[in-house]
Design a binder for these strands. Structure first.
Lengths: 207, 207
DNA sequence: TAGATTGTTAATCGATTAACAATC
DNA sequence: TAGATTGTTAATCGATTAACAATC
């Protein structure tokens, strides 16, 4: 399938989550405008996204909730699952591990890394913590494809370099230090301060 | 000043952070292409954003780092500072509090809320934790304008309603449950699972 | 049928980038 | 000066939305 637009991929993830909730409530069919209401978007947006993944609903009942969940899975999940590491087992890192734990998803956090010896060999919500120096070895051994960076900002560059060398395919950087990676590696950066500053701006100036 | 574009506001926050770092390294002037390199964007983008806030550099030295920091502050900060509450003092909530603590910003987290009696009356990185039922009272008393939701997903709707009733102006929702709020309230939603699923998709399919 | 819905194209909107004049 | 840079308009790109035919 052709590469999907950035925003469509994000929304597919959200549709799936909303559909899982819908299914859990015992509802088996759903209209585009119902999905749209849940996510504060327009029904056309929903229909267009679903068109892009080649699924079709029916005029009478809209979309079949289970089928839609299934199809979205074939698009955005990797069949064999995706193994993820969290670098930095501080409060943010362990919050991320706990956050993912128990979520129904093909993404599994299988390793944490830290430099602090106190944190090593402990389990964070069932995930073992390894010394940062072993990153190359463990990434290979555990077949880890993605990494989340949750270290102090001062360590970001070093961590990113080690991850790229270890052959990681994608990085989600939660530190406020932007990093440079080879264009082979997909990089997403998110900073909570920027996000909250944006909320402050638009809450104040109206939007 | 006219309302700035969404993306420009985000980048201004990032420019400021990069400029603070630049200044700390003893550099007092910077060219648009240097800023662009730090943030992996184009120099034109940088110049256009800076044009939009009405600041101008010089042909010889580019932008004055201190002045740029100053100007960005007048645009995106509130002069008197902005007071923020975190709802949910679990691992994510306390990570957020610690994350903001010590950052140089006009945003200050001044209160946490939780329903768990064990967490009450404790300090999280210097921030007091109040019982959730007192939210209305404390928001008024402490003059809190923004809130970050970091509760379990099951509580999101209830929390959002209480926040809107308490007169909050902006909400940053870190739970995976989308919420509906009055259009008076600016809402930003961010979900780590969606973000990581997006990384997984583009790391796999190339982009 | 009438009303509601989907799927899809075309139009619009918003954001980025190319082009370039001005100038140090 | 020649080369490098800024500021800004116009063109392009990508994403959203309006419009509407098809149909249950």
């Amino acid at each position: 399938m052709k590469l999907l637009p950035d925003k469509t991929v994000e929304r597919l993830s959200q549709y799936r989550r909303a559909m899982l909730k819908t299914l859990a409530s015992g509802k088996h069919h759903i209209y585009s405008h119902e999905i749209a209401n849940i996510l504060h978007i327009t029904p056309v947006q929903v229909r267009r996204d679903i068109m892009l993944i080649g699924y079709t609903g029916t005029l009478r009942h809209g979309y079949d909730v289970s089928e839609l969940i299934e199809i979205i899975g074939t698009i955005i999940d990797s069949e064999e699952g995706t193994r993820v590491a969290v670098v930095g087992a501080g409060s943010l890192g362990s919050a991320i591990i706990r956050y993912f734990n128990g979520k129904r998803t093909k993404l599994s956090i299988v390793a944490a890394f830290d430099v602090n010896p106190d944190k090593l060999n402990k389990l964070y919500a069932g995930v073992p913590c390894y010394p940062f120096e072993k990153i190359q070895e463990i990434v290979k051994q555990e077949n880890i494809q993605l990494a989340v960076i949750a270290t102090p900002a001062s360590e970001t560059a070093k961590v990113a370099e080690a991850l790229v060398n270890a052959g990681i395919k994608g990085i989600l950087n939660y530190t406020p230090s932007p990093i440079n990676v080879s264009s082979q590696v997909y990089l997403e950066e998110y900073d909570m301060v920027t996000s909250l500053e944006k909320v402050a701006y638009f809450a104040k100036h109206g939007k």
